[in-house]
């Protein structure tokens, strides 16, 4: 698992990258009540807004960590946004991306570096 400074986790699954938010981010956001997912087939650049997530308190953006094509989204979150709080690193993944070169993930933080960031 790799991590971004925006508190996303990135997991490689075959030739795809799965993206979600960390336990730390979910806790800080508070109770999530709405998730707006992108359309599959969307081409995004690194830093594009990919997902809008609303907690009781506020709306936040989740940015595409790398450039690529959104090939799958987690439809379960539309009906059950609370999953983000219950299982942020498992059932509450947001989207899967096809990217040009998985090697780009080497540039992101590993778990130890991310832990150092949030502690």
């Amino acid at each position: 698992m790799k991590y971004t400074e925006e508190h996303e986790w990135l997991r490689v699954e075959g030739d795809l990258v799965v993206v979600g938010i960390t336990e730390h981010a979910a806790t800080q956001l508070g109770d999530v009540v709405f998730v707006e997912l992108p359309d599959t087939g969307t081409e995004v650049a690194a830093g594009d807004e990919a997902v809008v997530i609303e907690s009781v308190k506020a709306a936040s953006d989740i940015l595409a960590p790398v450039a690529g094509e959104i090939v799958a989204v987690n439809a379960a979150l539309a009906d059950n946004p609370g999953l983000v709080n219950e299982d942020p690193t498992g059932a509450a993944w947001f989207f899967k991306m096809k990217i040009a070169d998985l090697g780009i993930l080497d540039g992101f933080m590993d778990e130890a570096a991310y832990k150092a960031l949030v502690e």
Partner: peptide
């Protein structure tokens, strides 16, 4: 201290 740092990117600061 936990709780004050930016988390994700906030669109709408609470009032």
């Amino acid at each position: 201290m936990a709780g004050f740092g930016p988390v994700l990117r906030c669109r709408h600061e609470p009032a």
